[in-house]
Design a protein around this nucleic acid. Structure first.
Lengths: 153, 153
DNA sequence: TAAGATTGATAATTCAATCTTA
DNA sequence: TAAGATTGAATTATCAATCTTA
C-alpha cells in the first residue's frame, strides 16, 4: 500500500474545522427537535421563532426582524408566522407608525407554551451542550460565533 | 419605565449561547452557498456531499455512511445521490461484499468539479471563518464541536 | 424608487411504509 | 429479525414576481 497518497486540496484542515462545526450544530438541532416534538408536539423552528419573539421588547417584532434573526427569507417567515398564527400562539398586528410593517406578537397562550417548552429545552442544552465544555471554552465558542455571525454579511 | 423587568426563563444565557452558534452557522452557510451557486452553479449541499465522498478512501462511500456524516435521513440521501448522479458527478456502485449496500462513488467529472469548487470555497473559509479568530480559538472551537457532535446521540 | 410583506411555482427534506438481502 | 435503501405523501424552505406603503 502507498504510504504517501497524493495530497489533495480536499483534505485542507480548514474544511475539516468548518465541517465539524456544521455537523455539531445539525446533530444538536436534530436531538433538540426530537425532544420538543415528543414532549411538546412542537417543531424546533416554531420553538425558536416563539422564543425570539418572546425575548423581544413587548414580545413582538416585525416580520423582517424575525427573518433576519432566524436567517430565513421574508417569504419563509410569512409562512412560518402563518403556521404560528394557526396554532394561536402568535397574532399579527399592524405597526402603528409604518403601515408596511406587520408585527408578529406572542399571545398569552404562546407565552405559556414557550415557557413550558423552554424548561424542557434547557435540560437538553445542559445535557448535550453546556456539559460538554468548560466555562472558559463556552465563553470562547460564544464569542467567536458572535463575531462569525457579524462577519459574513 | 421599569428598571427591573420580571426575569424570564426565556432569557437564560445558555439559550443565547446556543442561538449564537446556530445563527453563525446558518449565516456562514448562506454566504458560502451564494458563492458556490454564483461561481460554480452548485448548491452547498451538493458541494458538501461531493466533498465528503471525495475525501473517503477510494472516493466512495455507502448511502448510510453519507447519511450519517451529513446528518440526513436515508431517504434524503437517496434523493441527494439521485441528483448528483443526474449531473454525472456521482455514480452508484454495488458493494461486492454486501448486496444490500449501494456505494455513491465520485466520477472523474465529479472529482474535477469538486476540486475547482473547493478552491473557491477555501477562499470563502479564509475570508469569513478562519480570519475571524486566532489559531488558538480555532483549535478550541474545533475541539469543542468535535465533542459536541459525538455527545448527542 | 425603495422597503416590507405576501404569493405562486419549485425544490429539498422528513416520516412512515415497503422491499431486498444478511 | 434486522439492516440498508428506496418510495409516496406531506412539510418547509427558497426564488422571483407582485402588491402596498414610505
Amino acid at each position: 500500500m502507498s504510504r504517501n497518497p497524493r495530497p489533495s486540496i480536499l483534505d485542507d484542515e480548514r474544511i475539516t474545522s468548518f465541517g465539524v462545526l456544521v455537523e455539531a450544530t445539525r446533530r444538536l438541532e436534530r436531538t433538540f427537535a426530537r425532544t420538543l416534538r415528543e414532549e411538546h408536539a412542537m417543531s424546533l423552528i416554531d420553538f425558536e421563532a416563539l422564543l425570539r419573539i418572546g425575548r423581544s421588547p413587548d414580545r413582538h417584532m416585525s416580520m423582517s426582524q424575525l427573518a433576519d434573526q432566524m436567517v430565513l427569507t421574508s417569504g419563509g417567515v410569512t409562512r412560518l408566522v402563518d403556521r404560528l398564527a394557526g396554532t394561536g400562539f402568535v397574532e399579527r398586528l399592524q405597526c402603528p407608525s409604518d403601515r408596511r410593517v406587520q408585527w408578529a406578537a406572542l399571545t398569552e397562550a404562546g407565552l405559556g407554551a414557550i415557557e413550558q417548552a423552554t424548561a424542557t429545552h434547557l435540560a437538553d442544552l445542559e445535557a448535550h451542550f453546556v456539559s460538554e465544555m468548560t466555562p472558559e471554552e463556552l465563553r470562547t465558542v460564544t464569542g467567536v460565533c458572535d463575531r462569525l455571525r457579524k462577519g459574513c454579511g
